[in-house]
Amino acid sequence: MSRSFILSRTARMLLPVLVVLSLVTFYRGHHLPGGGFIGGLLAASGFALVALGDGTAAARRLLRIKPVSLMAGGLSVALGSGILGLVAGGALFRGLWLPEIHIPVLGVVHLGTPMLFDAGVYLTVAGFALQVLFSLQEADA
């Protein structure tokens, strides 16, 4: 399969942008449109572009860990956040929050188990999309 130089270069340039964008989308999700699901899809689309441009092998190298491990990690983080709620709050998936802290640039940062859960969603969704994408593309070869 012949490679498109423009697609390849653009994808390489867009990947970090898309990953950062996905993290921002994820972080703002609790108050503004966004969240783990959208963030995960955005991150996956960055790697999907690389896969289109340079093939899955290159995309997998950049990703470093397997999509299945991303999903496993995501599910563990999500469940772990629920269990934290069970152990410390008395009910599965009860939201627990740390006190608000002020950090320059980011402003008021308020962390809690729902954010952790959303991070699990982010990882699982990204892993899902990439797993399907890579498998389909590799079935080609």
Binding site: G29, H30, P67, G74, L75, G82, F93, M115, V121, V125
Partner: peptide, 29 residues
């Protein structure tokens, strides 16, 4: 502690449902 109701429903009020859904995603993949 969230102003985006859609997200709060997904990750807090109905977190168990969402968890079920992402498990389904993983199984599908």
């Amino acid at each position: 502690h969230g102003r985006n109701v859609v997200n709060v429903i997904l990750v807090d009020f109905r977190a168990l449902d969402t968890f079920g859904e992402i498990v389904v995603l993983a199984i599908a993949a």
